[in-house]
Design a protein around this nucleic acid. Structure first.
Lengths: 136, 136
DNA sequence: TTAGTTGCAAAAGGTTTGCCGTTTT
DNA sequence: AAAACGGCAAACCTTTTGCAACTAA
């Protein structure tokens, strides 16, 4: 993607301003405010090219559809290594900047650990005081 | 599912003897040795009922198809809480029995951590000495 | 002008389901 | 024989792709 179309600008803007990883559906809905006729196919195509040039990164939680957030070199320093927190009430995903460090000792003997992923689950700041049953 | 059909026995046996979480495709292939005409639909239906009665558990790694392994109460003690290791060469997934414990402090202030998941990536015992390029 | 983009609809890949014939009890 | 189960094909859901129309440069 080399042209700065309205679709491109709307999609990139939404991800950049999102503040947290967004689902492709969310990106479509938010970017549609700026470009009403926007199609999901275009969202996916822009996501693909933004991923390829490193502008955004894909965030995968187990058993869930992929989310996208602004890429590492845009505002990170340590190769972008960090983790995620998902709120069990509002289901939003948030970045967790810290990392406990080496987890090599967890693996069985003879296994060589090269990397790890950590996902925390619980209640985000907004939902921590709220009742379980309500939504919004 | 309340009847002990050949399909049921073959599928359960494969998961129980697998030693590691298996993909539904792998379950189909392995169980087909015992029941050649076995269909994927049956594998999924048995998986569903085995999950419901707790005989097996679902293992989800980010961005990958679900795997299944023998259920917690079958041979665990601590509610089955444990983690996983995936080999980047052979792509098999292995259980990691240990857990670093509380990761509450990683989350942003105001967030309430209830649970966590950890996935390690690297080389399994068999693949640790092997060359990156080869497969098998 | 014209090559890159978009929208639409169809295709793909994995999982689920409806239907109906088969098997277990 | 009745109820449960299995196989096949169609349905689903999310993501990808072919193609003709559109648009940025």
């Amino acid at each position: 993607m080399e042209r700065k179309t309205r679709q491109y600008q709307a999609i990139f803007e939404v991800i950049a301003q999102g503040g947290r990883p967004l689902l492709s559906q969310e990106i479509l809905e938010l970017a549609s405010k700026a470009v009403p006729q926007l199609s999901l196919a275009t969202v996916y195509r822009q996501i693909k090219s933004l991923l390829e040039d490193g502008s955004i990164r894909q965030v995968q939680l187990p058993g869930q559809n992929p989310r996208y957030e602004i890429g590492s070199h845009e505002h990170d320093h340590d190769h972008g290594h960090h983790h995620y927190f998902q709120c069990r009430r509002c289901e939003k995903v948030f970045d967790v900047p810290t990392c406990p460090g080496n987890l090599d000792k967890l693996a069985p003997a003879g296994f060589m650990v090269e990397d790890h992923e950590i996902i925390l689950y619980g209640r985000c700041g907004e939902c921590a005081g709220e009742n379980v049953m309500r939504k919004h």
